[in-house]
Design a protein around this nucleic acid. Structure first.
Length: 379
RNA sequence: CGGGGCGUAGCGCAGCUGGCUUAGCGCGCAUGGUUUGGGACCAUGAGGUCCUCGGUUCAAAUCCGAGCGCCCCGACCA
């Protein structure tokens, strides 16, 4: 991607109302744009990171045997009355009347909907275990949205639900998810602690939450629950066991705040100049900086085309800006590997800079591809 | 919902105490030119419902009232 075509717009100063570092940096790099309190647009560069995180989650969920589905955001209040949660959630839920005066809500979570699906489709012990998940927007009218997308009223969440024939099997599902979560957070470059937690409105028997390290004390990037028979009993999600006896399905549910992860990654990976993306979620892997407009720019474009071929995501800063601005914006944006086309080009060399530790390497142009390959192994 | 703060150009702010020309500054943006290794410079220019409504007044960004919005602390929360 060429910078001049990328919609990237950086700001020298953070917005006055931003408090946390991730919020400031996401605004300064033009990743997000606030519409109203707790509600944000993801601009192209921000969406790119969000999609990287989503794809890591997807891969690991699929590896764990999960099946992706997509449930609606609009849900009938009547379904929530079955579990008694309509009252419990209270004003956190965004509700409205449709034209037939039916009470509809914007889904803050999906236990009721998934249980409804399961009770319609699963009738036999032979159909389990099942693990279903979705990546979808959730709506919660938080008492106090804060810290940008860390606690938003509209946010992207991965929610998964497991269905088993008995406690033993459900336990296996639970621990499989726990392992999967550890892998997901590792791949995203997040250090997390696991703590036993209060199950809150979700209910169930037991839950653990994954807390991301960082300055910002907030909720937590993942939460896994053993729900037991809580929902299946109330909603009559039952199956026939081997003896033909009717039994309630044993459930678990597993959430990850996808958009919140993006914030959490920044909270754990930045310096006074800007973001330092882990390679796995960086919007681009390589940033190319031609510092002058002549031969440097020509050569930079050539290398840019070459590097795109093997599938690397490359950002070429083709703006007619001074070196200082390109460096500063590069630091702010946090792309891990930089290729600087400047002084050293006369000697046939490109300078490689690593954002992480600010180390520079002089690399002959013909060796660039191999050099990046080697560096990528270490990052 | 309680407490605190804020609302003036795309962003960051000054002006308000003590009402008075055409409401400023920095950044950004546009055009032209000189620059180009860590946020360069010159010139010209565009851009404003001073959050909204009402009140006081000869006169309101400025004073008063109400409302709306935003941020922070607290309670609350996957």
């Amino acid at each position: 991607m060429k910078w001049t075509q990328s919609f990237i717009r950086t700001f020298r100063e953070p917005p006055a109302d931003a408090e946390t570092i991730s919020q400031k940096l996401m605004h300064q790099t033009g990743m997000i744009d606030k519409l109203i309190s707790g509600v944000y647009s993801f601009l192209p560069i921000g969406l790119k990171v969000l999609q990287k995180v989503s794809n890591i989650i997807r891969e690991e969920m699929n590896n764990a045997g999960g099946l992706e589905l997509l449930m609606p955001s609009l849900q009938p209040a009547s379904l929530w009355e079955e579990t008694g949660r309509y009252g419990k959630m209270g004003k956190d839920m965004i509700t409205f009347q449709d034209r037939r005066d039916r009470c509809i809500l914007l889904g803050p979570t999906h236990e009721e909907v998934i249980t409804d699906i399961i009770r319609k489709y699963v009738k036999s012990w032979k159909q389990m275990p099942v693990l279903l998940y979705q990546i979808q927007t959730k709506y919660r009218d938080e008492i106090r949205p804060r810290f940008g997308i860390i606690r938003a009223r509209e946010f992207l969440m991965k929610d998964a639900y497991s269905f088993d024939v008995d406690d033993k099997s459900s336990e296996i599902s639970y621990f499989k998810m726990k392992d999967t979560y550890i892998k997901i957070f590792q791949r995203c470059g997040l250090k997390t602690d696991i703590k036993q937690a209060d199950s809150g409105v979700i209910g169930g028997k037991f839950s653990e939450e994954f807390i991301a390290e960082g300055q910002c004390a907030e909720l937590e990037v993942g939460h896994i629950f053993k729900l037991g028979m809580e929902y299946s009993t109330k909603m009559k999600a039952v199956f026939n066991d081997k003896e033909g006896k009717e039994k309630p399905i044993i459930m678990g549910c597993y959430g990850i705040g996808v958009s919140r992860i993006v914030s959490a990654i920044i909270e754990g990976n930045y310096d006074n100049k800007g973001i330092i993306w882990p390679i796995s979620v960086s919007p681009y892997q390589v940033l190319i900086l031609p510092l002058k407009s002549g031969e440097e720019k020509e050569m930079a474009e050539k290398i840019y085309e070459n590097l795109k071929k093997p599938g690397w995501e490359v950002l070429l800063d083709d703006r007619d800006e001074s070196a200082g601005i390109k460096f500063s914006d590069g630091d702010l944006l946090g792309i891990p590997i930089w290729l600087i086309f400047g002084k050293k080009l006369k000697e046939g060399k490109v300078e490689v800079k690593l954002r992480k530790n600010n180390k520079f390497y002089d690399v002959p142009i013909e060796n660039i591809e191999q050099f990046i390959k080697d560096i990528l192994k270490e990052l």
